[in-house]
Amino acid sequence: MSVTLSESAAEHVSKFLAKRGKGIGIRLGVKTSGCSGMAYKLEFADAAEPEDVVFDSRGLKVLIDPRSLPYLEGTELDYTKEGLNEGFKFNNPNVKDQCGCGESFNV
């Protein structure tokens, strides 16, 4: 199983990377915290760590550290608009229930 970007997410990631002027891709991860135990991490990546698992999706590098991987297997990162708000969203099949905020979840 892999971690992928939706078309819209890929479009935005490449735009943001171009604008930023540096970076090899993005890093997804999870950390413990938040109202439901786990929280997502979404960052620009400037360098790969030796232990990183690297996926290629729509020509973009997605870096994930091995400890986060089990929680993210099969996830698709999407970019959506909800009213005036817009941003990235994790479509994660591992999630049992998530905090209403969408930033924090349980597996």
Binding site: V13, F16, I26, R27, Y40, L42, E43, F44, A45, D46, T80, E82, N85, E86, G87, F88, K89, F90, G100, C101, G102, E103
Partner: peptide
């Protein structure tokens, strides 16, 4: 629901 933005490393 809050949507996420990409942050700087760390």
């Amino acid at each position: 629901m809050a949507l996420l933005q990409i942050t700087e490393p760390g």
